[in-house]
Simulated scan of single mutants.
Amino acid sequence: MNKEEIVEKVNFFLVDEFEVEEDDMSPDANLKETLELDSLDFVDLVVAVESNFGTKLIGEDFNGVETLQDFYDLIERKIS
């Protein structure tokens, strides 16, 4: 899976499952603030990543992940 496919898939489930506005989906969007994701949403996010990409994330994986681009990069690293 290439980076473009990862971005497309992540954006789809954020809009579909987390009701994030498509207009807010920019690589520099802050996950917590701009996308309004709280700690419970992060738990759901871990489940969504596992079901969409077949890889598990743990809390430490999110260290340094602040923007949507950071999140795309995290998933790319985990599935590579």
Results as ranks from 00 to 15, higher is better:
residue 1 M to I: 14
residue 1 M to H: 13
residue 3 K to S: 15
residue 3 K to H: 14
residue 4 E to Q: 13
residue 4 E to P: 01
residue 4 E to V: 10
residue 4 E to Y: 08
residue 4 E to W: 04
residue 5 E to R: 05
residue 5 E to W: 13
residue 6 I to E: 10
residue 7 V to Y: 15
residue 7 V to W: 15
residue 7 V to F: 12
residue 8 E to D: 13
residue 8 E to M: 10
residue 9 K to Q: 10
residue 10 V to D: 01
residue 11 N to K: 08
residue 11 N to V: 01
residue 12 F to N: 05
residue 12 F to Y: 12
residue 14 L to I: 03
residue 14 L to K: 02
residue 14 L to H: 03
residue 14 L to Q: 01
residue 15 V to N: 01
residue 15 V to L: 03
residue 15 V to Y: 07
residue 16 D to Q: 05
residue 16 D to M: 02
residue 16 D to W: 02
residue 16 D to Y: 09
residue 16 D to V: 00
residue 18 F to I: 02
residue 18 F to V: 03
residue 20 V to C: 00
residue 20 V to P: 00
residue 21 E to D: 06
residue 21 E to W: 13
residue 22 E to G: 11
residue 23 D to F: 14
residue 24 D to I: 08
residue 24 D to E: 11
residue 25 M to D: 05
residue 25 M to S: 04
residue 25 M to W: 13
residue 25 M to Q: 07
residue 26 S to G: 06
residue 27 P to M: 07
residue 27 P to H: 00
residue 27 P to T: 06
residue 28 D to W: 04
residue 28 D to V: 08
residue 29 A to C: 05
residue 29 A to H: 02
residue 30 N to L: 12
residue 30 N to F: 12
residue 31 L to R: 02
residue 31 L to F: 09
residue 32 K to S: 13
residue 32 K to Q: 14
residue 32 K to E: 15
residue 34 T to L: 05
residue 34 T to G: 06
residue 35 L to S: 00
residue 35 L to V: 01
residue 36 E to M: 12
residue 37 L to H: 04
residue 37 L to N: 03
residue 38 D to H: 03
residue 38 D to I: 05
residue 38 D to N: 07
residue 38 D to C: 04
residue 39 S to N: 07
residue 39 S to Y: 09
residue 41 D to T: 02
residue 42 F to G: 00
residue 43 V to D: 08
residue 43 V to G: 07
residue 43 V to L: 11
residue 43 V to Q: 09
residue 44 D to P: 04
residue 47 V to D: 07
residue 48 A to T: 12
residue 48 A to C: 09
residue 49 V to P: 05
residue 49 V to N: 12
residue 50 E to R: 15
residue 52 N to C: 15
residue 52 N to S: 14
residue 52 N to W: 15
residue 54 G to A: 11
residue 55 T to D: 01
residue 55 T to H: 06
residue 55 T to M: 04
residue 57 L to M: 10
residue 57 L to R: 07
residue 58 I to P: 01
residue 58 I to W: 06
residue 60 E to V: 14
residue 60 E to I: 13
residue 61 D to P: 09
residue 62 F to I: 02
residue 63 N to I: 11
residue 64 G to E: 03
residue 65 V to E: 00
residue 66 E to Y: 11
residue 66 E to F: 13
residue 68 L to R: 00
residue 69 Q to T: 11
residue 70 D to R: 13
residue 70 D to F: 13
residue 71 F to S: 02
residue 72 Y to H: 13
residue 73 D to S: 15
residue 73 D to Y: 12
residue 74 L to G: 09
residue 75 I to Q: 10
residue 75 I to R: 08
residue 75 I to D: 08
residue 77 R to Q: 12
residue 77 R to I: 02
residue 80 S to G: 11
